[in-house]
Structure formats: structure tokens, C-alpha cells
Amino acid sequence: MKNKFVLGFVMISIVALLSSCAKVPQAEIDAANAAIEEARGAAADVYVPAEFAALQDSMNSINAMVEAQKGKLFGSFTAVKEKLAAVTTQAATVKTNAETRKAEVQAEIETLLTEVTALVGQNKELVGKAPRGKEGAAAVEAIKTEIGVIETTVTEATGLRDSGNLVGALDKLKAAKEKATAINTELQDVIAKKAGVRK
């Protein structure tokens, strides 16, 4: 009887040694992955790409830690759990940052749209007032076509904005504003010079 008891104890001890004592924190892993997906859903990979890449790196590192602990005789997931909690929090921050940046880009687009539209309107008026210049009608036509191209660019940018490509829209509008400002300056200079001559 005594021998059986000892043998049973030894067997149970061996089984306990061979099986992992700690359990993989699957719920925490799922929560972290879900938080990362939420950040991706908020286009964090577009608006805060460096932060998002860091987040992914952290998660990859945790996955490796999990496997390492699973392979150990006395694996412990305490550190993994702490890191998972940190990643979940970080993912929420990255998501917020992405949303903030997206809102900033959106606001910048709207401001630029207003500015470029105003500049285009002003340029159209100035073309009418401007002296024809040495190159004559061709120069005026050139400016008119340039204004037309700016308008096309604005339309393209609006299309990109509506399809969700805010970064592409922003870059187009920046180029359009640069061009519209250059035309505006050129026209105002020419008009000012002409006015100076008349005096």
C-alpha cells in the first residue's frame, strides 16, 4: 500500500514537471491583437506609420516570448501579460493619434481647398485687369490654361479626399496652392507695375 502511494506520488510529480504549469494568456493576446486591428482600422499605418510599425514589432516580440515560454519547462507568462497590457494600451494611443492626425489632415485639406478656390477666383479677376504683356494674348491664354489646370487639380484632390486618400489630396492641394500663389503674385506685380507707369 505504502509502495503504491509513493509510486503514485512520483508519477504525478513527473507529469506535473513535464506539463507546463502556466497557461498561455490567450484572452490578453486576443485583446492586444484586436486593439492593433482597431488602430489599423483607424488608418494608423497611413497617418502614424512609425508608431504603428513599432506596435507591430512589439506584438511580434510578444508572440516570440509566448512561444519561448511555452517551450520552457517552468514557463511563466507574467512578463508576457505585462507586455500585452502595455501593447493594448499603446494600440489605443496609436489609434487616437491616427484619428487626431487624420482630423488634422482633413482640416488642412479643407483650409487649402478654401484658399486655393479663393486664389483661383482672384486670379480670374486679375487676368481681366492685367495688361496683356509683351507676349500678348498667348501669355494671357497661358495663364488661363494654368488656372484651368489648377482647377482640374483641385477637382482631382477633391476626388482623392472623397475616396479616403487624404494624403494624396493634401499633396495635390499643396502643389495647386503653390501654383495659384505664383500666378497671383505675378499678376499683382504686373498690374502694380502698369499702375506705376501710368502715374
Binding site: 497661358a142 484651368g148 489646370v149 487639380t153
Partner: peptide
Amino acid sequence: YAPLPIPEKTREHFNRAKMLLSEAKIA
């Protein structure tokens, strides 16, 4: 060519090229 009465399409292509150049410089 810009001071000459070149066809509207030609001028438009030219101005679009200039706009794309500006976009490329921003990038």
C-alpha cells in the same frame, strides 16, 4: 513656344506637366 498661339491641348499638357513637377518636388 509659350508666347506663341499653340493649340489649347498642347498648352494644357504643358501646364499639367508643370503641376505634376510641383507635386513631384513636394514628394
